[in-house]
Simulated scan of single mutants.
Amino acid sequence: MKVTAAVLEETGQPLGFHELELDELRVDEVLVRVVATGVCHTDAVVRDGLLPAQTPVVLGHEGAGIVERVGSAVTHLAPGDHVVLSVNSCGTCRSCLAGHPTACLDSYVRNFAGTRPDGTTSFSDAGGTPVGSHFFGQSSFAERVNAAVRSVVKIPEDFPLELAGPLGCGIQTGAGSVLNVLRPDPGGSFVVFGAGAVGLSALLAAVARRVGTVIAVDLNADRLALATELGATHVVNAAEEDPVARIIEVTGGGVQTALDTTGNARVFRQMIDSLGVAGHAGALGASAAGSEGIVDLPSALGRGIRITWIVEGDAIPQLFIPELIAMHRAGDFPFDRLVKTYPFTELNAAFDASESGEVIKPVVVF
């Protein structure tokens, strides 16, 4: 089957549009017609070489679409189902069996290798040369994909697919970091460093959890204004004031829970320094190789703080994504406020808009 896909041909370059051949569906895969897919920071860091990947490869890992066919071993999905495509996992390792598939012991091979676990790819070019596929088990920057079954999450058919895609990674990551890991107390305090798609999703989750003091820290005044509209009780422009001093002032001695979405070592230190006694911090931003966070170890010990590194919100996508949809429908999680759509052909423009801060969460529509 011939499909149009956006291909990363060389690290650091814009994606090019090509007609590729999609191979035969495997027994444990699902053929999905992609309707929309989010543009995530992880796509950008792979494109730019901060996370290594073999090229050429088709990226994209926040797909949403309609099932056209299922492999013979797939029994819980059927043609016509509406689905979100999320992170892939093996389902059989210790982490997966313990309910933590985002910590799958085979995560790299199934999400970043650019192949199936057996080394094959589902895409090839006109000359028959393999093109990398199965990024996060899907490679959703393509019209159709043979997605790994554990990447596929069934959703209600009446939920807009152009909103559903970002639930597969960015929105799930931010919200899950709060609801599944940090779990701030209702009436307690929470701060998020970075008011992008992940950070604002975390903020929305904290508001939904009825956290009393919700603080957003960023350098972009427009994003901070949006954070206020979405429920932040306080915002801090780190270009204009010391975020640590301000957070300690607002919380009366230090925040109970905190999340760094930036991957910046200096910001990480600010997050740790802003914690109160027995505070819990989460970190999930992708950092460049060689980045080192500096922690005052004696102070950290004396305050009894905890630090957790979080992947994909420690979510089980098949359970958590429907939960987020239910929260959205109840009016408790208005993540649609973050989304702006683009035609698929304007994918590179969507990347640029995200990197400039102009758009929080770009979604390309086929």
Score class of each variant (00 low, 15 high):
D222V: 07
T262C: 04
V244Q: 02
A278N: 14
M271L: 13
T261Y: 12
H234V: 06
L301I: 15
R306Q: 12
V244T: 08
A238W: 03
T213D: 04
L284Y: 02
L230N: 03
A258M: 05
A283S: 14
A286S: 07
Q318V: 11
D222L: 10
V250K: 04
S291D: 09
T251W: 02
R246D: 08
V267A: 08
V267N: 05
I272P: 02
P243L: 00
L230T: 05
G254K: 09
V277H: 12
G285M: 12
L230F: 01
V295Y: 11
R246V: 03
T251Y: 03
I310L: 01
G231H: 01
G282D: 11
P298T: 13
H234W: 10
L230Q: 06
V295L: 15
H234E: 13
S291K: 01
E241F: 08
R246S: 06
V214F: 04
E292F: 00
L284I: 13
D314R: 10
L297Y: 15
M271Q: 06
L219T: 15
T257D: 09
H280M: 14
P298E: 12
D273C: 01
N220D: 15
N264S: 04
L275A: 03
R306W: 07
A278M: 14
R223F: 12
T233C: 06
L226V: 10
I294L: 05
T262W: 09
A288I: 02
D222M: 12
V267E: 03
A281P: 00
I215N: 14
L259K: 03
G212I: 00
D242G: 04
I294H: 09
G252I: 10
T257C: 14
D222I: 04
R223I: 01
N237C: 11
E229P: 04
G263P: 08
P243W: 00
S274K: 02
V236A: 09
G279T: 06
H280N: 10
A216H: 12
I316V: 15
S291G: 01
F268V: 08
N220H: 14
R266A: 09
G252Q: 11
Q270L: 02
T261S: 09
V217D: 08
E240M: 09
E249N: 07
E292K: 08
P317I: 02
A232T: 07
G282F: 10
D273H: 03
Q318A: 15
A278P: 03
P317F: 10
N264H: 12
V277K: 11
G313P: 02
M271A: 12
F268H: 01
R269Q: 05
G313K: 07
N220S: 13
V295A: 15
N264P: 02
A227H: 10
T233D: 09
L284P: 06
A300G: 01
T262K: 07
G279W: 05
E249F: 08
T251H: 04
N220W: 11
G253V: 14
L284K: 05
T308L: 05
T228W: 02
V250L: 13
V311S: 12
P317N: 05
T262Y: 09
V295M: 13
T251F: 04
R269F: 00
V211G: 04
V255F: 07
A265M: 00
Q270R: 06
E240L: 14
A239G: 15
R269P: 00
D260M: 07
D218P: 10
P298K: 06
D222H: 13
Q256P: 01
L284D: 02
R303M: 15
G302Y: 13
T251M: 07
